[in-house]
Design a protein around this nucleic acid. Structure first.
Length: 877
DNA sequence: CCCGTGTTGGTTTTT
DNA sequence: CCAACACGGG
């Protein structure tokens, strides 16, 4: 059976020891056979000297620290790579170096990232360095994609078949809901969603049902937490399915139970590289330790209850006495180049950018690295190539307020007297904040400030919470300023896509009950609750899939004739499609399935405004299948890679959360909402205490360090929270910025001072400690702007466009549509519309134009009533 | 089965 | 305040 993973060579492609090119190999081996860490032998030193003379291209241009990080191939290495210090470059060059020196074949390198995006980027950049050799790197990928690859090979060891399905969050919640109901528990009081989150948390920690803390187990459904978790795992097994957590946990269990298999992987992976190590959770840590560990001297026992991170400083290698029973003892003699029985593992990360503690990441993993991997080389990259000294100075001073850190200070020597300081602005409320940011953006765009016109693509607004985006969107629509929102629900999470996928899944995997239940009555076939319940009970009683149960039951008279007929048809279709699976091209089959099932017709007959968009999405889904060889291959891809590609052509300001900004950079960054309660967020403070505050501070650090040249921070005195206006205090982080690198904007008139209660005085309490007068240009400008804004609330600029990357059906107020350019007004020219035109709006549907003013139209929609919209959002019908 | 009304809660997100 | 969801009526 071809299931999309046979094409990856595994152990059957075991290469002989690297030998060519001869000269390079000799060099590499000489170095690696040198008595590690102590000092190099004379011959090796001579050769090293010779190497100095002939530096390979890919090494030139690295600074000494980067170079050391690339060239220290033997033993554990931790690269502490500050923001903008060339982290990815080090990682990719290191791989290139391993390959070029003949140390390992591409298939002997394990390189893990967190996101598909990061994996893709790495692949591309390695490709640039070494050419086609990347193709041979089957083990470069996310934790999860590598986890699947391992698990497919050994699925039977954990009670699965190798064609198991991967459930996403939505499936998981539906499944749990069923279990909760089956237990007779009130699913209102104990929401499935909440329990799914708990399970996720346990799995992040690597905990089986038997290992979860008693308190946790009791906390849900009157103490049924543990039973439910166990029931969930059983159900997954009978569905031949996995959730995301299992993709890591099953391999861990499998390795522990089968040292011989683990040993194969030890032999395979000569080099391990890990990106964003500060984001690893306990399960990922355990997974890595199993793969990295050699010689059985490393006690690793989190599954036995010992949590790494506590317990006297982690896991000392010499604590041989407490070696764990099973896994640890896979006795592999250290191969050449490994020290302390450890593989050549290189973890790259930045403890100051650890912002995912709330979803299970353990900063402690990176803080503990030297203890975990004795003899580890720690290399700090502190030379920054991204930002000005002011930005680095501000960020550095801020982050220095954290206690739990390894300590780095970024610097740059590209100092320019024209560099702007970080600017702190105050505004009266969030509306004014949005207005002022919009003005600043336009100023930069026009080039007023420095004579240079700045592209919108070089600017970003980074917010703490997504509700903050709305005000900016509103303002930018008004101004006709292009923007794109990054983040939010994605293409593959949309209803119609999930439905279609459920059809495909069921064809490929007839035991996929979740898929069955999803679509058995979609489109409506008169198969209601009663029928489904009967199928469900029958299937459970016999432990067979529901589709099979349906086949059985239509032979009996347990089901009403009408439903029986409908069910019969469904079964027939699936039988046919399954047969066609092997013979028909998958694209064709997919189209056929959606047609014959009546699914496309369902949307064609749907009169709602979203229906056309949904049909378009279905077409897009089919198109995206072209890149795959088989339907199974496609399904595998989708379950792991839920990205939507973005449209980079358009010039637009990016709006996103601070979290999704990690790893990105922009010339100009706007950071609004620096108020106590919002940033740092009250909930982080309440629930996370001191470490919560530190994570918020790291988030602030991430925000500032996204900026290359300009960083504008804002806070407001009044913000509407849950509908009611609250007066707010400036964020404590503002006080943690160094005066030398920060400038407080001339008062934008707004900020009337007030005390800080028990929090002590802030220099931001006064309207402006540095310069403030009602005669300042800033005040005058503010006044001017104010009238400006009220005068023309709709703006008159042309070419407005909005893009929403990854946002699904419910873009706010119908302004935007999924990743597509939806508005392009042309107000300079006479309107392309006339009063009375019949038009279509993607959100509001069809309607007639009743008035036109510039690029804004008043339209009476058939269903949505009268609305004012920009002309770019509608088209003639 | 669809739609309207009431209720509830409202950081951050990947796989 | 506003959006998502659950429930009940037609």
């Amino acid at each position: 059976m071809s299931n999309g993973f046979d094409d990856i060579p595994f152990f059957d492609d075991e290469e002989p020891a690297p030998r060519k090119p001869a000269e390079r190999a000799a060099r590499g081996n000489a170095a690696s056979s040198a008595p590690a860490p102590g000092g190099l032998g004379i011959a090796a030193r001579a050769m090293a000297a010779r190497d100095q003379a002939r530096v390979p291209d890919y090494l030139s241009g690295l600074n000494p620290e980067q170079r050391e990080a690339v060239e220290t191939l033997d033993g554990p290495v931790l690269v502490l790579a500050g923001a903008g210090t060339g982290k990815t470059r080090v990682l990719t060059t290191r791989i290139a170096h391993i390959l070029a020196t003949g140390r390992a074949f591409p298939s002997q390198i394990l390189a893990v990232t967190f996101t598909n995006k990061a994996a893709r980027e790495m692949k591309e950049r390695i490709g640039l360095l070494v050419g086609g050799a990347v193709e041979g790197m089957p083990w470069l990928g996310t934790f999860h994609s590598i986890g699947v690859k391992i698990l497919r090979r050994h699925a039977e060891m954990v009670g699965l078949r190798s064609d198991f399905t991967i459930l996403d969050t939505d499936d998981v919640i539906r499944l749990i809901k069923q279990l909760i109901q089956a237990e007779g528990i009130d699913d209102k009081r104990w929401p499935a969603k909440q329990f799914a989150a708990m399970i996720d948390g346990w799995k992040n920690k690597g905990l089986d049902p038997s290992q979860i803390p008693e308190g946790d187990a009791r906390a849900f459904a009157n103490g049924k937490g543990r039973e439910l978790y166990a029931a969930y795992q059983n159900r997954l097994k009978s569905l031949n399915a996995c959730d995301f957590g299992d993709l890591l946990l099953h391999p861990i269990r499998m390795f522990r139970a089968n040292p011989d298999i683990l040993k194969d992987y030890h032999q395979r992976f000569k080099y391990i590289l890990v990106d964003e190590y500060q984001d690893t959770n306990t399960a990922q840590y355990m997974w890595l330790r199993l793969l990295a560990q050699r010689s059985g001297r490393m006690p690793i026992s989190p599954l036995e209850g010992e949590m790494p991170g506590r317990a006297e400083g982690g896991i000392p290698s010499n604590a041989g006495a407490s070696a764990p029973p099973s896994v640890g003892s896979a006795d592999i003699s250290p191969s050449r180049g490994e020290i302390n029985g450890l593989v050549n593992i290189c973890c790259v990360g930045d403890d100051d950018q650890s912002i995912y503690g709330w979803r299970g990441a353990e900063v402690d993993n990176i803080l503990r690295f030297e203890k975990d991997f004795p003899g580890a080389k720690v290399i700090k990259l502190e030379r920054n190539y991204r930002s000005t000294e002011h930005i680095l100075g501000a960020a550095g001073h801020l982050i220095a307020h954290n206690e739990g850190r390894l300590g780095k200070t970024l610097f740059t020597d590209r100092v320019n007297p024209d560099d702007e300081k970080v600017v702190v602005h105050a505004a009266w409320d969030s509306e004014e904040e949005a207005r002022a940011v919009g003005e600043e953006i336009e100023r930069l765009q026009r080039g007023d400030a420095d004579g240079k016109k700045h592209a919108l693509n070089d600017m970003a607004i980074l917010v703490r919470a997504s509700f903050q985006m709305r005000e900016f969107e509103d303002r930018f629509v008004t101004l006709g300023l292009n923007y794109r929102v990054i983040g939010g629900p994605r293409f593959y999470e949309r209803l119609e896509i999930r439905d279609a996928m459920a059809y495909f899944r069921l064809v490929c995997q007839p035991a996929d009950d979740l898929a069955f239940e999803r679509i058995v009555n979609t489109p409506k076939r008169g198969l209601g609750d009663t029928t489904i319940r009967a199928l469900h009970d029958y299937a459970r009683a016999r432990d067979i899939p529901m589709l099979a149960a349906a086949s059985d039951l239509i032979e009996t008279d347990e089901i009403k004739p009408k439903a029986r007929k409908a069910l019969f048809d469904v079964i027939q279709y699936f039988r046919r499609w399954s047969e066609l699976l092997e013979t028909t091209p998958h694209i064709e089959l997919a189209e056929q399935i959606l047609e014959e099932s009546g699914y496309t017709d369902m949307w064609k007959n749907d009169k709602s405004a979203e229906a056309p968009g949904r049909l378009e999405n279905l077409k897009e889904l089919i198109r995206s299948m072209e890149a795959f060889e088989s339907m199974r291959g496609f399904l595998e891809h989708v379950s792991l890679v839920m990205d939507a590609e973005q449209n980079a052509d358009m010039d637009a300001v990016s709006i996103m959360t601070l979290h999704s900004a990690k790893g990105l950079e922009f010339e100009t960054v706007f950071l609004p909402g620096w108020e106590e309660g919002l940033f740092p967020h009250q909930r982080a403070l309440d629930e996370g205490g001191r470490s919560g505050l530190e994570e918020e501070r790291r988030l602030a650090y991430v925000g500032i360090t996204r900026a290359k040249r300009r960083c504008h921070i804002w806070f407001v005195s009044n913000r509407r929270i849950h509908g009611l206006w609250q007066s707010t205090m400036p964020s404590r982080f503002l006080d943690e910025l160094p005066i030398t690198h920060v400038e407080v904007a001339e008062s934008e008139q707004s900020y009337g001072g007030y005390g800080r209660g028990g929090y002590g005085q802030s220099r931001f309490d006064k309207a402006d400690p540095f310069a403030n007068s009602y005669e300042t240009p800033g005040w005058k400008r503010a006044q001017a702007n104010k009238s400006d804004a009220t005068r023309d609330n709709w703006g008159t600029r042309s070419g407005h466009a909005v893009e929403r990357i990854g946002y699904g059906e419910s873009g706010p107020r119908g302004k935007t549509i999924d990743g597509e350019l939806v508005a392009r007004s042309t107000s300079q020219e006479p309107s392309r519309f006339s009063v009375g035109d019949r038009v279509f709006h993607i959100k509001f549907g069809n309607g007639n134009i009743s008035a036109i003013e510039g690029n804004k139209l008043t339209i009476t929609f058939d269903r949505a009533g009268e609305k004012r919209v920009l002309d770019g959002f509608v088209e003639k019908v």
